[in-house]
């Protein structure tokens, strides 16, 4: 990592003003260093500390209560509910958006002229403002007004009101999540396919392998394995961070059916003012996201060594 130390040129080129190179480098990195300490490192430690107290926002005093918040969390059905909902949401969004994107990427990779067009179209939701689009989706998935409702009534089916029913509301949020994420995954897979395209052509020419599914299963997917793991982990992180759609569409309702981890942290901490308890939830959230990131770093390093 210190391969750049050869720029420490002794003697002949001393910078103007008599400052050493090391001092200049320290001055150059000081603002970012101080800000990273103040806005990332210190807050993480403060959250850890607050999670051991009974602190409430707006109060002047606090008491250390040890692991009390964590004990309370383990006994809190709403915590388990939120964790379960986040897990279900992730278990729906991640497989569909990863596998769907993979299939689309394989289909798209062999298209020559239309490829750009599809890339742009599938990527549009990624760049869109999810808060605004959530409002749009609330009408699209509404059981009484909107296009889905008229489609259902034309087909003679009973109305499907997504955000009035618990299970359906979670599925509704997952549909929006997939819509928002699939283009992002598609682009990552396309990048991965470009890297392996040489090997791919050679191998399929040798084997004479035929059929879309065979090629996908025995050839493309194994070669794409490192990309797939990165896409999978990133999708999990994205899915566990779902917030905008919950805040705009359901606020965790009906009756907590769509309460997710991050939304619960937000409401408990800033609406319920239970800062101590909210911090304990935040620590759980940090550990989950940190674990996903570690997997990603591990995979990334393995790929780099290849």
């Amino acid at each position: 990592m210190n391969s750049r130390s050869d720029l420490e040129i002794p003697g002949q080129v001393t910078p103007k003003g008599g400052l050493s190179h090391a001092a200049i480098a320290q001055a150059f990195s000081a603002p970012a260093f101080i800000l990273l300490i103040a806005t990332v490192v210190a807050p993480v430690f403060v959250v850890l500390l607050i999670s051991l107290t009974d602190y409430r926002l707006g109060r002047l005093t606090l008491n250390f209560i040890g692991l009390g918040n964590y004990a309370r969390m383990l006994a809190d059905p709403f915590f388990w509910g939120a964790l379960r909902n986040s897990a279900i949401y992730t278990a729906v969004v991640v497989p569909v958006s990863v596998f769907g994107a993979l299939c689309l990427a394989v289909l798209l990779d062999s298209r020559r002229r239309s490829r750009r067009f599809y890339e742009i179209v599938y990527f549009l939701p990624v760049t869109s403002t999810l808060t605004a689009m959530s409002i749009v989706w609330s009408y699209l998935l509404n059981g009484h007004i909107g296009p889905l409702a008229s489609l259902f009534s034309t087909l003679g089916l009973p109305p499907l009101d997504f955000f009035a029913d618990g299970t359906l509301a979670l599925i509704g949020l997952a549909i929006i999540g997939i819509w928002h994420l699939i283009g992002f995954n598609l682009i990552l897979f396309l990048a991965g396919l470009t890297v392996i395209s040489g090997e791919l052509k050679e191998a399929s020419a040798l084997d004479g392998m035929d059929g879309f599914w065979d090629r996908l299963r025995y050839l493309t997917w194994p070669l794409l394995a490192p990309t797939t793991i990165v896409v999978f982990v990133l999708s999990c992180i994205q899915a566990f961070q779902v917030f905008d759609t919950v805040a705009v569409l359901t606020n965790g309702g009906p009756y907590g059916a769509t309460e997710m981890l991050l939304h619960k942290i937000n409401t408990d901490t800033f609406t319920g003012l239970k800062a101590g308890y909210g911090s304990a939830l935040t620590v759980v959230y940090l550990i989950l996201i940190g674990a996903f990131s570690l997997v990603q770093v591990a995979v990334g390093n393995r790929k780099a060594h290849f």
């Binding site: 990332v40 490192v41 607050i50 937000n266 911090s279 959230y285 940090l286 996201i289």
Partner: peptide, 12 residues
């Protein structure tokens, strides 16, 4: 800092 989500530092 790459693996610390922004929401986690909101309270402090």
């Amino acid at each position: 800092s790459l693996s610390v989500p922004a929401q986690a530092t909101a309270l402090p």
